[in-house]
Amino acid sequence: MKRTTAALIVTVLVVLAGFAASELPSEAERAEPVNHAIRSLADTGAVNAVSAVLFDYRAFDTLGEATVIITTAMIVAFLAPQARASMLSVRMSGIVLYGVVLLLPFIAVFGLAIMLYGHISPGGGFTGGVVLSTSAVLYAVVYSAGGQQSYVLAPATNKMIENVAMTAFLAVGFFGMAASGAFLANAATGIGLGTPGSLLSAGTIPLLNVISGLKVGVGLAIIIISLFLE
């Protein structure tokens, strides 16, 4: 009975989503860049309008999200200290152990690429950080099983990176304040926006991408590994 109700709710919601999707612009209309995308390129130098919103116009909101993650990581690390984490009782098979070795470099490079090219192509600090954290979690879970704990980075290093990245984010914000009077200002500070589409362009956006990517990656790694090995 419960399941039937749930199935009905899913169907109704998806039919509603279908109606909403039918109102969206057609593919031909979507191919043309809209007004605000052109404006954000002029304002911030970022080709990816989403990154322009996340790390320039509404960078303060991103700082709020970063604060949520650092608070959660702090609380989880306090309640479930990694230093006293117990060993896992399971043993991983050889297929898992060698498969992870083969997969990890690709996951890590993919995460770094999403993070570094966030202002040019889809992605950005948050997504790149999540991908990076999955590689750290995968390594910790697979190689801590049935033996001694092993991490990509020691828990203490993780926490230090989290703190340094948080401070760096605030430092970029105060730099904007000192240079132009607005917290987290980008183009107004007078730093060059560079050629749109090159790796070093869009002012502080790539910097904030890397900072928030490291912060989110390390923060999620702290949270998940603490819960897993607790």
Partner: peptide
Amino acid sequence: HLDAPDVALTEAAVGAGVTALIFVWFIH
């Protein structure tokens, strides 16, 4: 498909990646 590749990446990383990882672990 709806031209939101940023959201698609996040959905794949968080929805299919992290959420599934956490669920599998707690089932174990």
